[in-house]
């Protein structure tokens, strides 16, 4: 029970980071982006590449940090992956979404996002192979927090949670304390008025993709660190991340954070009563429950 709760919190922090970017884009550009979860894959694989590169160039970096399995090389790679994934998101927007948007086919963007998801996911399969990869082959033993009930926590998991909370805290600071953050919130609330107050929409859209992509990349690396890396990370996480945005209310960044934790915890707690094979369906049940009880989510506003 408590073990499930702890695991849920951890998964939740990863989902939250994925959901933040998704909710911003969905709100600003008015489409459900089914390719967002592929950004997690891009991030996870980008970190894998640079981890290998750094370790090869500077073997000193290939040593683990303290009790973690994480090496300095991978730690550095996280930030590079965040940057590269942000740029990939901007590139995809420029090549595909922006052009469809400008042609005035708003609804087609959902189709296009599915198409992009297929392309990205399968290109990754082609480039890196279908088999599962790991950042490290070393086995890191979990720390026993208690024997009865048995509660195990890996040092990596603590690191992931702390990092995720740190990124969210930074984002919170930016949104609540800086005029740059107000700009993002203003565009999210009312793009036309934002333009009237002198905000250039296209710039903010680019920045949103970068932030969303960077957070997704971090989420992807953390997911890979906790589980494993494979080309279907995006396919497996797209529904839980959507569930997180719907729970929180589309457009609400804080809702996405809370929604991520709720979905993560609920999906893990559900394993107490359900066989584990059913866990991919749990996010859908959560979506249904939210649509029944509170269609606009916890923090969402009614809109058409």
């Amino acid at each position: 029970m408590i073990q499930h709760l702890l695991d849920g919190i951890l998964v939740g922090s990863i989902l939250s980071m994925g959901a933040i970017g998704l909710t911003m884009v969905m709100h600003m550009l008015r489409f459900a982006n089914f390719s967002h979860a592929e950004l997690l894959s891009i991030g996870a694989y980008a970190a894998l590449v640079f981890d290998g590169l750094f370790s090869a160039i500077l073997p000193a970096l290939a040593t683990s940090i303290g009790p973690l399995s994480l090496t300095w090389a991978l730690f550095l790679s996280i930030f590079i992956a965040m940057g590269l994934t942000g740029l990939s998101a901007v590139l995809i927007d420029m090549l595909v979404f922006k052009r469809i948007r400008e042609n005035g086919h708003e609804l087609s963007m959902v189709f296009a996002s599915f198409g992009m998801a297929l392309i990205v996911r399968n290109l990754i399969s082609l480039g890196f192979g279908l088999k599962t990869r790991l950042y490290t082959e070393d086995i890191v033993f979990a720390v026993r927090l208690s024997d009865d009930p048995l509660i195990l926590v890996k040092p990596d998991q603590v690191f992931v949670l702390i990092c995720a909370l740190f990124f969210m805290a930074v984002l919170h600071f930016v949104l609540s304390r800086t005029t740059f953050g107000y700009t993002l919130r203003a565009v999210a609330e009312n793009p036309t008025l934002a333009q009237v107050t002198g905000i250039r929409l296209s710039t903010v859209i680019v920045i949103t993709w970068i932030i969303g992509g960077a957070l997704a990349a971090a989420a992807g690396v953390f997911y890979g660190l906790n589980n494993q890396i494979n080309p279907v990370i995006g396919r497996d996480l797209v529904l839980p991340i959507f569930a997180a945005t719907i729970v929180g209310g589309i457009g609400s960044i804080y809702g996405a954070v809370l929604g991520g934790f709720i979905v993560g915890i609920a999906a893990n707690m559900a394993l107490v009563i359900l066989p584990s094979g059913y866990s991919p369906a749990v996010p859908f049940l959560i979506i249904l429950a939210v649509l029944l009880v509170r269609p606009n989510g916890l923090f969402g506003e009614e809109r058409t």
Partner: peptide
Amino acid sequence: RPDQMGGVGIAYVPQTDNIFRTL
């Protein structure tokens, strides 16, 4: 573009939704 209007000294106050409610 609307965001360039401030640069030439023009301000516009829409009829509704003319403030950011969440800020």
